[in-house]
Write a protein that binds this DNA or RNA. Sequence first.
DNA 1: GCCTGTGAAGACGTTCACAGCA
DNA 2: TGCTGTGAACGTCTTCACAGGC
Lengths: 209, 209
Amino acid sequence: MKFLKIPAATITRLSLYTRALEGLVVEQVTVVSSKRLAELCGVNPAQIRKDLAYFGQFGVRGVGYYVKELLFDIKKILGLNKEWNLALVGVGNLGCALVAHENFSKQGYRFVAAFDADPMKIGRKLVTGLVIHPPNEMANICKEKQVEMGVIAAPPNFAQEIANRFIDVGVKGILNFAPTQIHAPEGVRVENVDFTVKLDNLAYYLTAG
Amino acid sequence: MKFLKIPAATITRLSLYTRALEGLVVEQVTVVSSKRLAELCGVNPAQIRKDLAYFGQFGVRGVGYYVKELLFDIKKILGLNKEWNLALVGVGNLGCALVAHENFSKQGYRFVAAFDADPMKIGRKLVTGLVIHPPNEMANICKEKQVEMGVIAAPPNFAQEIANRFIDVGVKGILNFAPTQIHAPEGVRVENVDFTVKLDNLAYYLTAG
DNA sequence: GCCTGTGAAGACGTTCACAGCA
DNA sequence: TGCTGTGAACGTCTTCACAGGC
């Protein structure tokens, strides 16, 4: 059923399901119903079954889903059965936090390059041993290290320029932490992580009810 | 028109509009059409007009919107015409980056308290001068400092416990950076910022097209 | 002529309700 | 009986298309 259009929200939820399933593996739970999994993830049980139905049949009627198998299958769907090479641009507080963040490496995301425009930072090593390079070396190094995803943790006014460099090297996925809209051509996926938007949301709901 | 249900997506977009409008203010643009603003934000022009229509009439037919006025109005809608007091729990790499992040303070978000369970960190000062306190002082300090939003940047296994403490003190808005689902009662708003989910999204689209 | 404001239409995503199977 | 898989119903959000007004 891969040929019909899959909601973006479904993909996001699959990611949540893997989390819950990983928790269940730790608790040595072997079988889980859509009802139980739904409670853990805060969604509707039918939603889970629908989401999975886009990709095939993974459960056993009258029983539920085998935790390990389902986890394996979803990870495969998401493309998490491989390692992904990331490059970071902007090695400030946030950038350092990202490189050091263990959840990334745990899931198979690996920073293989780091860039910063600040001359003071170039040549310095990060905790992981990664050396900081100047932005004009992005093309060479990204090719050499086979970077597949770019992470932008630089100030907003540089974000588009950095994105362009990534796009030029053929990077097809960009994770943007800068609070600005990035324009990318068809075929390049941009995901935004935006703290202030989330805070603005809180502000609104706290103000208006 | 405040009485009819407003899509969550609308609120998120309002936040994007403020960004674009702030940019236009800097460029000394005084009037903007929904078409132009839509291009800047990567949305449909009708969408912008619909979003604004939930809250009133802000434009001039045949002309467009006055940039400064619209910015002011949207900020008011979002509740950004005041300062918001935040508390941080979990002063690791990410937590430090958040406190130091200038976009927060620029928008009127102010960290007024910081907590960490690590005895080594307690009593230490952050760059902003903020002193780190132990979690058992959350109730007292949050009340004293009139904390309105809680920011969780601690490991996932502590996230729910921390959230509960915030909820107990009467904090009604929580920004959660831990990759786990937080359960909160009606009236408490939780916003999640989840890097790995975003990366998983990229992984999927890079794998499946 | 131009651009906003908005009802109507359309697209999309979620939930229901039940058939199908262990 | 219990729980999955799924068409159909429902609700929500987005886009269209044009009336309204500068």
